[in-house]
Design a protein around this nucleic acid. Structure first.
Ligand code: DCP
Ligand code: MG
Length: 1192
DNA sequence: ATCCTCCCCTAC
DNA sequence: TAAGGTAGGGGAGGAT
């Protein structure tokens, strides 16, 4: 209802004509005003404490809507127009302005800053309107300068409170001040004060404000720090704070999200300075809310009225806002109009403005008590399991479901939901046992299962990766690191071999500073729509550094200039570029389509613009565990969702990096929208200035921002300091759309109240630990602890880091050339197997994905780790999140990996076999699998792998080696115990005849569910598996991998069986050809692939020629990379339907086309079929692409 | 001591 | 509908 009251337009700077020379100027036609909650008092300011402990003096509140380019005079004019308090209109009154905002350094504290003063007589005219901004002042007198400044220039931002002290001439008596709670006022400057104002509104409104009036305020007194006793309470509140969305209505600024680290950075960043920095505490603590403030809290939280659930805020007697109702009416009308309008013009976009919840019941309850599951989700139409919910609440085994007893610790996860039952138990209100009825329904449809879940095999993998934002995030990061490293190598090389710094682009590097008009490297967007690969940057280093890149610099001194650049609400900003009509609306980026998406969506918000954050919506964040847009929409029903546009993110990112590279001495890729740069040299070369307070670094940052903005259309914020840690902290102050230079002189001020988890690398767990063991979490407090104590608590390295961080010291250098240590692929979404065949096929397909990725970086490995998530026995089959993994137990198992001649490998078949073997060894019911992953470690350069056979000849798998190499992890031990107890039969476990002794896994004995599938010629893999009975041949290692002596030790019957199996397989021509001493660079490629490689057409040469030269031994080199260059996520985007890898169904025709003998093919075991098929298809499509530009 | 393995944690 | 990935730092504790 009132989202538009908080008009705030920060993230979208494009309606502002902002030049460095002139003041920001807001186009008021296009820009929504924001709300300034203004508290007026005669004779003094309200005390900051009121804003901290939640007792807002709302009786003195006036709500003013204005723009950030408004002046104090304009604000005052507005105030005088809406007030009916004669004192405020007094012609001789003088007004002192002060802003109150959340102290970035101390949570829950309010910082104050005086903004200046205005006298009644200075007011020239009417306040600005939509059509005509108020006249800006022309006075040039220094004394008056503060009221010429705009709010923005005064650093007053949306979300800040404005306090005004009215000073009246001594002889004037406030005529008609019938206020309760007599405020003692002190004379100020010979001005006398009268009592506090009564705002227009219900007479005698009994807000808390009135009741808590505590006499005279002391406008300039600092607040005492909370004592030790207060601390735990404060910490508790903070804890709760993380789990709940902010009470929106009373506290528009977003609060930090709970628990993924990521929000921490983005949120707190934004909180600290500009926009939303203040959070719940300004109003009332969460614990209070829990216990006594339910109705209002809910309204505040949801900012919407749930029909039939809760009375609208106006009825809430606890905090009367009656005085504002009228103003709102108007605004709301406007808002409605504009919403209507927006809806019309943006038919195409998915706006769910009218999307109201259909199941009112449960959200209210849940929010109210906070002890209920966070996201219940529901089937679109009915309330979700109300009965069961109660069950859960009363469940004795869920102690944390009691409202008064929030746990002190719970652990964060890569995803925001708790994954393990242990973690879930620590999260109050999390109900992992709630089933998703809608999903259950859909799962009953075989068609759905076979096309939308892991049962769909390679198509599912493709579709998933094509749409997984987290996958892109990770991939891009890796690719950007490569690109940066490449560029550096190039720069080094050019410096070494060339004459100076001339770059091919003819850039002027003579003095070490690139001077160009934008792009240095070319952003080759043709190469791929989403992959970063194929784009070359020029990194120009300063002469001083070029020769010695990693020289230990005097990083402790302020000489060094590190900048941390980060796009503001990146995905959202990019998405808004093509939807300017939405830019002042609350907008989130998430997967969500269809009309009822709003009702039943469990989609996660990836990024929320600042406008949306006002409502408490967080990028990617959850209020407690995760943040389905379903909930986002509760917070802000009018929120618009826009789709992902991964190619555009990539393009913007490349622009960013290109620009940064052109100016930086060194660059560290942090993520797609974020980088650390060392710009010491560039800043040094800024033209000197005699201006007082001139800051070359800040100037430079603003220049960068302008350049980036002009190239991308998006705002970046830049934090500046002399080391990485401080630069990151500074970024928070800089956001949104700003820069901030954190200097040593200000260190204390900034550091002291910073919470430990605001430090990069320290998160929720660290904070809990700090509170637990040290009783404090702010750097100020922690700084008092000796280093030994910190090391004790946090470990040696982390303890030291923290110790220094508390002192503003950070010795780390930018890292831009670290070699890759692992390559992996995992999917923990949509994993729903019906049988072990599906699981097996999936593993082999995942293996192909891994192989592809290895190939892309020209690597192979010696070690494989299988990562498994298995449904927790107590978790429902369908967890709350649609197709999510729900509550799981996690099992990892490592095995050595090598080709049969003992070399490191990247062969898909081998990887698949090992992974499948490991999976089988767990003997889990395939139906319970919820996540699978394959990680390759002990990496080696693929091109060098041939030279280094494993020292141990690890190819042989003896019983002993098996046991040794596949050690049983803690988790599995626990699982075994559990299983022993339950004595459940296993359905997937199969004795691995060739590699495991029957005794090695007792639970696998006697199970023979795996089975050779007879392939009918026409139906391929789609035919249902035959009955159980035979041992699987799918997991057999090549015969040479079977240790002879082990083999001999087997019972005769087994030996015979195995021999039979192998001889049957040896009929397969494909099998006999697994890699050998072939000098080819990719010895582990299966034959057909190798063929493709060899025949490879000119592509490899072309790409090699195009590829940045890299030095010997580089990660990125040569042909192999070229070959794989196109095998990246780009493929998924461009040709989502293209079949890569194995596919379940193949026609005779296709086999023919691929040149595969159908009869032989059908003799092959499925995974070999898959491999062959994949290889053949791969080679074919490779050949096609190869002929350049023939992208089909 | 030092290394290795299996985690946990963090970040986007 | 929905796409909860992925890499690296580092700590605990056992093996060497
Ligand atoms: N849990 C998360 C965190 C981030 N992202 C994506 C979307 C973000 O736009 C992008 C960059 O992350 P940031 O942490 O920089 O967040 P934003 O750029 O969105 O906001 P801010 O202005 O705070 O930087 O990564 C995501 O998909 N899921
Ligand atoms: Mg960002």
């Amino acid at each position: 209802m009132n989202q538009h009251r908080h008009g705030l337009k920060l993230s979208s700077g494009w309606t502002t004509n902002y030049t460095m020379a002139s003041k920001p100027f807001v186009d008021r036609e296009k820009t929504a005003p924001f709300l300034v909650r203004t508290f007026v008092k005669i004779g003094g300011f309200h005390r900051a404490e009121f804003f901290e402990d939640g007792t807002l003096p709302t009786t003195d509140e006036h709500q003013i809507f204005t723009w950030r380019d408004a002046t104090l005079k304009e604000v005052l004019t507005s105030l005088r127009l809406i007030t009916n308090n004669p004192d405020i209109r007094h012609p001789l009154a003088k007004f002192l302005f002060r802003s109150l905002y959340a102290d970035s350094a101390a949570r829950g504290r309010i910082a104050t800053r005086d903004l200046g003063s205005v006298s009644s007589r200075e007011i020239l005219g009417e306040p600005g309107t939509l059509d005509a901004p108020a006249p800006r002042l022309l006075t040039d007198g220094d004394e008056e300068s503060d009221n010429v400044k705009t709010l923005e220039e005064l650093r007053f931002f949306p979300g800040d409170y404005l306090c005004i002290s009215v000073a009246l001439p001594k002889h004037v008596t406030a005529p008609d001040v019938s206020i309760r709670g007599a405020a003692g006022g002190q004379p100020v400057n010979g001005w006398k004060s009268s009592g506090p104002l009564s705002p227009p509104g219900p007479p005698g409104g009994l807000g808390r404000g009135g009741g808590h009036w505590r006499g005279g305020s002391d406008p300039y007194a600092g607040r005492g720090r909370g004592g030790r006793a207060e601390r735990s309470r404060r910490e508790l509140d903070r804890e709760l704070d993380r789990r709940l969305p902010p009470p929106r209505r009373r506290d528009s600024p977003p609060h930090r999200d709970l628990y993924t680290g990521r929000d921490r950075s983005s949120l707190s960043r934004s909180r600290s300075r500009s926009p939303p920095r203040r959070r719940y505490r300004a109003h009332s603590s969460y614990s209070e809310l829990f216990e006594q403030d339910t109705p209002e809290f809910i309204n505040a939280l949801c900012n919407t009225v749930f029909p039939g659930e809760t009375p609208p805020p106006g009825k809430d007697s606890s905090n009367s806002h009656g005085c504002k109702q009228q103003q709102f009416t108007e605004i709301e009308t406007l808002e409605n109009l504009s919403q209507e309008f927006m809806k019309k013009i943006s038919q195409a976009s998915t706006i769910h403005g009218d999307d109201h919840d259909s199941d009112e019941d449960r959200p209210i309850k849940r929010l109210k008590t906070s002890d209920e599951p966070d996201f219940i989700q529901g089937s679109s139409n009915k309330p979700l399991l109300p009965d069961k919910q109660e069950e859960i609440q009363d469940d004795d085994e869920n102690p944390f479901r009691t409202r008064k007893n929030p746990p002190a610790d719970f652990k964060p996860l890569h995803s925001t939901d708790p994954v393990t039952p242990e973690a879930a138990a620590r999260v109050p209100g999390y109900a992992p046992n709630k089933a998703n009825r809608a999903a259950e329904q859909m799962m009953k449809n075989p068609e759905f299962r076979s096309t939308r879940t892991s049962a769909a095999g390679a198509d599912f993998i493709d579709g998933f990766y094509k749409n997984s934002r987290l996958h892109y995030l990770s991939t891009w990061k890796a690719e950007l690191r490569e690109l940066v490293a490449e560029a550096q190598e190039r720069a080094d090389k050019e410096f070494t071999h060339g004459e100076g710094i001339q770059s091919p682009d003819g850039l002027d590097g003579g003095d070490g500073k690139a001077k160009e008009d934008g792009l240095v490297g070319k952003v080759n967007e043709e190469t791929s729509s989403t992959s970063m690969r194929g784009n070359a940057f020029q990194l120009l280093r300063s002469p001083s550094k070029r020769g010695k890149p990693k020289e230990q610099e005097a990083i402790g001194s302020e000489e060094t200039v590190i900048m941390h650049c980060d796009f503001d609400c990146f995905f959202a900003s990019v998405g808004l570029l093509s939807r300017p009509y939405l830019k002042d609306q609350p907008v989130v980026v998430c997967h969500s389509q269809g009309k009822q998406g709003g009702e039943s969506s469990t989609s996660e918000v990836s990024s929320a613009n600042y406008r949306a954050r006002e409502s408490g919506i967080r990028a990617g964040m959850r209020h407690v565990y995760r943040f389905p847009s379903y909930q986002a929409r509760k917070l802000c029903p009018s929120v618009a969702t826009i789709p992902y546009e991964f190619e555009k993110y990539k393009a913007a990112s490349l622009q960013l990096y290109t620009i940064l590279m052109s100016h930086a001495d060194d660059v560290q890729a942090v993520s797609v929208d974020e980088a650390l740069v060392d710009v010491t040299t560039a800043v040094k070369q800024m033209p000197p200035s005699t201006k007082r307070g001139y800051d070359a670094a800040k100037d430079f940052a603003e220049m960068l921002r302008a350049e980036i903005k002009s190239k991308t259309g998006c705002d970046v914020s830049i934090g500046i300091s002399h080391n990485i840690m401080l630069a990151r902290l500074a970024t928070r102050k800089a956001k949104p759309a700003g820069s901030y230079h954190l200097r040593l002189a200000d260190l204390q001020k900034h550091i002291e109240h910073t919470c430990i988890d605001e430090l990069h690398g320290f998160g929720h767990a660290a904070r809990e630990k700090a509170l637990d063991r040290l009783g404090a979490a702010t750097l100020g407090e922690l700084a008092k602890k000796p280093r030994s104590v910190l090391c004790d608590v946090f470990g040696k390295a982390m303890g030291s880091t923290l110790y220094y961080a508390c002192r503003g010291i950070d010795h780390r250098n930018l890292e831009s050339d670290k070699p890759r240590k692992s390559v992996s692929a995992e999917i923990n979404y949509g994993i729903r197997f019906e049988n072990s065949e599906q699981a097996q096929a999936f593993m082999f397909q995942l293996a192909e994905e891994v192989t592809r990725r290895l190939g892309a970086v020209d690597m192979c490995g010696r070690s494989l780790t299988l990562k498994i998530m298995k449904r927790d026995p107590d978790a429902p089959i369908e967890p709350p999140k649609f197709l999510g993994h729900g509550c799981c137990n996690i099992f990892n198992k490592q095995a050595s990996l090598s080709s049969d001649d003992g070399r490191a490998t990247g062969d898909a078949l081998i990887i698949g076999q090992v992974a499948w073997r490991l999976l089988k060894s767990f003997a889990f019911d395939p139906k319970d699998l919820r996540g699978v992953g394959i990680q390759i470690t002990k990496l080696e350069k693929a091109s060098e792998a041939g030279a280094k056979p494993g020292e141990l000849g690890q190819a042989k798998l003896s019983f002993r080696t098996v046991q040794k190499e596949e050690s049983i992890g803690k988790k599995e031990r626990e699982e075994e115990k559990r299983r022993d107890k339950e004595k459940k039969n296993v359905t997937m476990g199969v004795p691995c005849l060739t590699v495991q002794p029957p005794s090695s896994h007792s639970q696998s004995q006697g199970n023979t569910s795996d089975e050779v599938q007879e392939i009918k010629p026409e139906s391929g893999f789609s035919s249902p598996p035959p009955a159980k009975g035979a041992a699987s041949n799918l997991a057999l290692p090549s015969f040479s991998q079977v240790d002879r002596s082990s083999f001999e030790a087997l019972p005769d019957t087994l030996k015979t069986e195995i021999k039979a199996e192998y001889s049957r397989r040896s009929a397969s021509p494909a099998l006999s050809a697994i890699s050998d001493g072939d000098p080819d660079r990719t010895p582990w490629l299966s034959p057909l692939k190798r063929l493709a490689t060899n025949k490879g057409t000119p592509l490899s040469r072309i790409t090699q020629a195009l590829a940045p030269r890299s030095r010997e031994g580089s990660l990125r080199s040569g042909v192999s990379k070229g070959i794989f260059e196109k095998q990246n996520i780009f493929e998924r985007c461009e040709k989502q339907k293209e079949v890569r890898g194995s596919k379940v169904v193949v026609t005779r025709d296709e086999l023919k086309k691929l040149g595969i003998d159908t009869r032989v093919f059908h003799e092959l075991p499925p995974e070999v079929q898959m491999e062959q098929l994949a290889s053949a298809r791969f080679s074919r499509s490779f050949g096609k692409k190869d002929t350049k530009g023939t992208k089909k």
